[in-house]
């Protein structure tokens, strides 16, 4: 069990970068021509989107490795990456809703990206739920890896079907046109969330590893003090 301080260093660096990038984005970057100040949400939203995709792609990689090598280490990483990916995707949906309200006038618009993200939250969140209900660690590892592979393969189909479905009603203008002045806060925050994600995933992997250790070798019953209450309970 590695107990190095690397995750904490990552998280510390991430916090520094995020504060720097956000202050720049909020107070020093110029307001966008059409979007006005609302555009500043993008400095948090776009980096979250990139890193959510990255975390879930890493989960997919872990699932493939877990199926191929059948090592518990990959299952621990899978659990960590799935959870971080789901949290980031859920956060992404909330930011998207907050951005949609002043821009499109509604909290939720059936924009393909927003909708696909919501579907992903449920698809990958369900795998985390599945893990809660399977006691056998080997089966849990295989099943969640299989489910992750299938859910990941499903994401492009969901995206295209929603895009097709929605494009029949309206065409959405995309806020991707970012000019030079907006690049720096975006990049700094992207690296900030990247380091935060790495730190959180590695810390969460340790939690998973410790739990797995407990499952595979449960704490031995202590001899004298533990027995008494059990015997009492059996008698009553």
């Amino acid at each position: 069990m590695a107990t190095s301080k690397t995750p904490y260093a990552c998280i510390g660096l991430a916090v520094t970068l995020l504060v720097w990038g956000s202050v720049w984005g909020l107070f020093y970057a110029p307001a966008e021509t059409y979007m006005g100040d609302v555009q500043r949400i993008m400095y948090a939203h776009v980096p979250t989107a990139w890193n959510a995709m990255l975390a879930l792609s890493f989960a997919f990689l872990c699932a493939l490795m877990s199926l191929w090598r059948s090592e518990m280490a990959w299952d621990n990483r899978l659990e960590a990456a799935l959870e971080v990916g789901v949290v980031l995707s859920a956060l992404l949906c909330m930011q998207g809703a907050i951005w949609a309200k002043p821009t499109w006038g509604v909290w939720w618009d059936w924009d393909p990206r927003l909708t696909t993200t919501a579907v992903m939250v449920f698809a990958f969140g369900a795998i985390l739920a599945l893990r809660q209900f399977v006691e056998d660690p080997v089966k849990r590892a295989t099943w969640s890896a299989v489910a992750t592979v299938i859910a990941f393969a499903d994401v492009p189909i969901v995206y295209f079907s929603v895009r097709w479905w929605n494009s029949l009603h309206q065409l959405q203008s995309s806020p991707e046109t970012v000019s030079k002045a907006f690049h720096w806060p975006l990049r700094i925050n992207a690296f900030g969330i990247l380091f935060l994600m790495i730190g959180l995933i590695s810390l969460r992997t340790r939690v998973a590893a410790l739990r797995r250790e407990e499952e595979l070798a449960p704490p031995l019953p202590e001899t004298a003090p533990r027995r008494a209450p059990i015997a009492e309970g059996a008698r009553s």
């Binding site: 449920f122 795998i127 739920a129 299938i150 859910a151 969901v158």
Partner: peptide, 12 residues
């Protein structure tokens, strides 16, 4: 668990 896992997948 079954609907929880299945519903998001079969959106398309």
């Amino acid at each position: 668990l079954l609907p929880l896992l299945l519903f998001p997948l079969v959106v398309p």
